[in-house]
Simulated assay, not measured.
Amino acid sequence: QVISQRHTQRSTILSTNLPFAQWGKVFDSNTVASAIADRLVYNSEIIILGGTSYRRKHK
C-alpha cells in the first residue's frame, strides 16, 4: 500500500541486498513482488553497488 500510494507522487529510496528475482520470498508472493518492483523501477534509476560489505568488515 505504501508503494502504491507514493507511486508518481513522491520519491522513494529503497536499499536491499536482494535482487528483484528473490523479492517473492520477502513478500510471500511473486505477483505482489512484481507489482512493487514495477512501480519502483518506473521512471527511476537503479544503482547496483558491488564489493565487500563495509558493515561486515568492521564487526
Score class of each variant (00 low, 15 high):
residue 6 R to M: 08
residue 11 S to I: 04
residue 39 R to T: 01
residue 11 S to Y: 08
residue 15 S to L: 15
residue 26 V to L: 11
residue 53 S to I: 09
residue 54 Y to D: 07
residue 23 W to G: 04
residue 12 T to H: 12
residue 10 R to H: 08
residue 41 V to P: 01
residue 26 V to F: 00
residue 38 D to I: 12
residue 38 D to N: 14
residue 21 A to C: 02
residue 32 V to H: 10
residue 24 G to K: 12
residue 58 H to P: 05
residue 30 N to F: 04
residue 37 A to K: 09
residue 18 L to F: 08
residue 52 T to W: 03
residue 35 A to Y: 01
residue 29 S to C: 04
residue 27 F to K: 07
residue 36 I to F: 07
residue 4 S to V: 05
residue 3 I to H: 11
residue 58 H to R: 13
residue 29 S to I: 14
residue 13 I to S: 12
residue 50 G to D: 13
residue 8 T to H: 06
residue 15 S to P: 01
residue 39 R to W: 11
residue 27 F to A: 12
residue 46 I to A: 00
residue 10 R to Y: 06
residue 46 I to K: 06
residue 6 R to I: 00
residue 8 T to S: 06
residue 43 N to H: 10
residue 22 Q to K: 05
residue 59 K to F: 10
residue 59 K to P: 09
residue 11 S to A: 10
residue 17 N to E: 05
residue 3 I to K: 08
residue 24 G to S: 11
residue 12 T to D: 09
residue 43 N to Q: 05
residue 57 K to S: 09
residue 21 A to L: 09
residue 56 R to W: 01
residue 21 A to Q: 08
residue 18 L to W: 03
residue 49 L to E: 09
residue 51 G to S: 05
residue 31 T to E: 06
residue 58 H to F: 02
residue 47 I to T: 03
residue 22 Q to C: 00
residue 37 A to Q: 11
residue 24 G to V: 11
residue 29 S to L: 07
residue 24 G to W: 03
residue 5 Q to E: 13
residue 42 Y to C: 02
residue 34 S to E: 13
residue 48 I to C: 13
residue 40 L to S: 13
residue 45 E to V: 11
residue 27 F to M: 11
residue 28 D to Q: 08
residue 36 I to T: 01
residue 34 S to H: 09
residue 14 L to W: 10
residue 8 T to W: 00
residue 33 A to F: 04
residue 55 R to I: 00
